[in-house]
Simulated assay, not measured.
Amino acid sequence: MSEILSPLKAPYPASISETLKKYPDIDGYILALFRVFANSERFLSYSGPKNLLDKNSPLSLREREIIILRCCAQLDCEYEWGVHVVGFAVKADLNEDQINSLYLGSGLDDCWPEKEAELISLVDQLIHKARINYDENPNFSQHWNKDEQLEIFALVANYHLVAFVANSSKLELEPFATRFPKP
């Protein structure tokens, strides 16, 4: 009989342990999400630290975090939201109003410049309609080149997968993570 996905506990099989070494850790602590991935060696290898968050991304850290946090908000993934707010919001120069807006508001909030407001709208469209409405976003191809456009699509898709796993596994927040803002 199958059981609900849950984080593996050490000691890990040698092959899992080797793959987990490629994942980021915090003073040797491996996030619960990554340990859920480890239930399947194939999935762990496939879902490994994607290059979507590396320094080679055509998007800025700020753009990536806007996309990720908006996905987490729209997909009700508090686990990943909490990890990213703590780990990246300051580095991405997102202020408290912007963080709150990503969860509680929209790109129409006063805290967003035009291009970032459009990015939030794009994420919402991809999540809810699986496409971009070019009538509502006529500047999409002017603000982002083809490489950046595909990166936006890939990030939204990747964080759907993260939300599916984290939410279905009923992961508790990491002890250091932040919670969704209160309305």
Results as ranks from 00 to 15, higher is better:
A154I: 02
N139S: 02
S141P: 05
K115L: 04
L150H: 12
L108C: 07
N133F: 00
C111L: 06
L119W: 02
L122D: 02
A154K: 13
F140C: 04
N133C: 05
E136N: 14
A130H: 14
S121W: 05
L108P: 02
E116M: 07
C111T: 07
V123I: 09
F153L: 15
E114H: 10
R131N: 12
Y159F: 12
H160Y: 11
I152L: 01
N139C: 01
F140S: 01
F153T: 03
H160K: 03
V162W: 07
I120R: 03
D109P: 08
K146E: 09
R131H: 15
H160C: 07
K146S: 09
E151D: 12
D124Q: 11
E116N: 09
V162E: 04
E118N: 10
V156M: 07
N139F: 01
V156Q: 02
C111A: 11
N139L: 04
D124A: 05
P138W: 06
A154V: 06
Q149K: 06
L155V: 00
H160M: 02
D109M: 14
K146M: 10
F140V: 03
N158M: 13
Q142C: 03
I127H: 07
S141Q: 12
L122Q: 05
S121I: 03
S141R: 11
N145G: 10
V162C: 08
R131M: 13
N137E: 01
K115Y: 04
W144S: 06
N133Y: 03
H143K: 07
P138C: 12
F153C: 14
I120D: 06
L155W: 02
E136H: 12
V156I: 15
L161A: 11
R131D: 10
D135A: 09
D147T: 13
L122C: 09
L108E: 13
N158C: 10
F140W: 06
P113M: 09
L150D: 06
V162A: 08
H143C: 09
L108R: 13
Y134W: 01
L161T: 09
I120S: 00
G107E: 04
Q149D: 08
A117N: 09
W144I: 11
I120T: 00
E114D: 10
L155R: 02
V156H: 03
L155G: 04
W112P: 04
I152D: 00
D135R: 09
E136W: 03
Q125Y: 05
I132W: 01
L155Y: 02
E148W: 06
D109S: 11
G107M: 00
F140Q: 07
L126R: 01
Q149A: 08
D135S: 08
L161N: 07
N137I: 05
L119M: 12
Q142T: 11
E151P: 05
D147R: 12
N137Q: 08
D147A: 10
